[in-house]
């Protein structure tokens, strides 16, 4: 089964938040969703899950219209973070509700994970720490045994040890149950270690889908220039991440052969290509905005 998101558009208070968003999620995939703050990630999650009604477009499970086939809704788990109804109930009560709601709810796994992480079964979730609340939400999500799980900032507020456990939970969920997981996160370093591909939400739409391994157009370089001034073409074609004296680390959004020839020229003492990460792709994608801010800062100072 494939979850198909087709030309979804959504305005909130007359302001377009999503515009023609389209992508597909296949079984057993872990997909990251990144974008700037307020880019519409949570709105997209809300629209996929049925919480929000799209102005245009379709969410489908293969050829079926997901919104109209409510009997299939236990195949998708999504809960708002951090404000949700879990806060007012204990894990015990939540289990009784989720058992009715999700046909394949795995009660024994739920109980064992609650026990493993030492979560108090009769204490209301709002009395848990922020990290424990996030951990509980992930346990509840996976215990639902829904085919599709949408996680909004799942690693937010977790300490390193719990974060490792959660990442392990995510991976084992996918390997053992072939679950498809869509993760929205600002923590791109963590995403790199988890996801198969990343969807970048920019200008109200999916601007690009990328995998670090298959990426050909985005390149990261460390280089030292010769003259007093940074060669102008660098600013025009890339995003400068750091600059210490004459040494610059730069990401090129659309690396071309012509750019390679320029870098091999006499203007540079040395040029070295560095391994690229999702953060680099993110920076490169928002190079114009970062450049505009940089200009503003320079004008102010």
């Amino acid at each position: 089964m494939t979850l198909v998101i087709e030309n979804i558009s959504k305005k909130i208070q007359n302001k377009p938040v999503l515009d023609n968003v389209s992508f597909e999620l296949k079984n057993g995939e872990i997909v990251g969703l990144v974008g700037r703050n307020g880019a519409g990630k949570t709105t997209l999650f809300g629209t996929i899950s049925g919480k929000l009604l799209p102005d245009f477009g379709r969410v489908g499970l293969d050829d079926l219209d997901y919104a109209k086939t409510t009997w299939l809704h236990d195949q998708l788990f999504y809960i708002d973070m951090p404000e949700n109804w879990f806060r007012y109930y204990s894990p015990k009560k939540i289990k009784s509700i989720l058992k009715v709601s999700y046909e394949n709810f795995d009660e024994s796994w739920y109980d064992s994970e609650i026990k493993r992480f030492g979560l108090n079964n009769s204490k209301r979730i709002r009395n848990y720490s922020k990290g424990m609340r996030a951990l509980f939400t992930i346990i509840a999500s996976f215990a639902s045994r829904a085919q599709y799980v949408l996680l909004d900032e799942p690693l937010d507020g977790l300490d390193v040890l719990i974060r490792d456990q959660v990442k392990q939970l995510i991976v084992s969920q996918v390997t053992q149950h072939n679950t498809t997981i869509l993760i929205a996160s600002h923590n791109l370093v963590e995403l790199d270690t988890l996801v198969d591909r990343i969807l970048l939400l920019k200008d109200q739409t999916i601007d690009r889908t990328f995998t670090i391994e298959d990426n050909k157009t985005i390149k990261k370089y460390q280089l030292a220039f010769v003259g007093e001034e940074l060669p102008a073409f660098l600013r025009d074609s890339g995003t400068i991440i750091t600059q210490t004296g004459h040494v610059v680390t730069i990401v090129f959004n659309d690396f071309s052969e012509e750019l390679g020839i320029k870098l091999a020229g006499p203007e540079f003492k040395f040029v070295e290509e560095l391994p690229i990460s999702s953060e680099d792709v993110f920076r490169a994608s928002f190079a114009e905005e970062a450049f505009a801010w940089q200009q503003e800062l320079e004008v102010e100072s």
């Binding site: 899950s49 049925g50 919480k51 409510t70 009997w71 299939l72 809704h73 236990d74 998708l76 999504y78 809960i79 708002d80 949700n84 109804w85 709601s101």
Partner: peptide, 8 residues
């Protein structure tokens, strides 16, 4: 909000 996402 959550009930809107359920199989009802």
């Amino acid at each position: 909000t959550w009930l809107y996402t359920q199989n009802i």
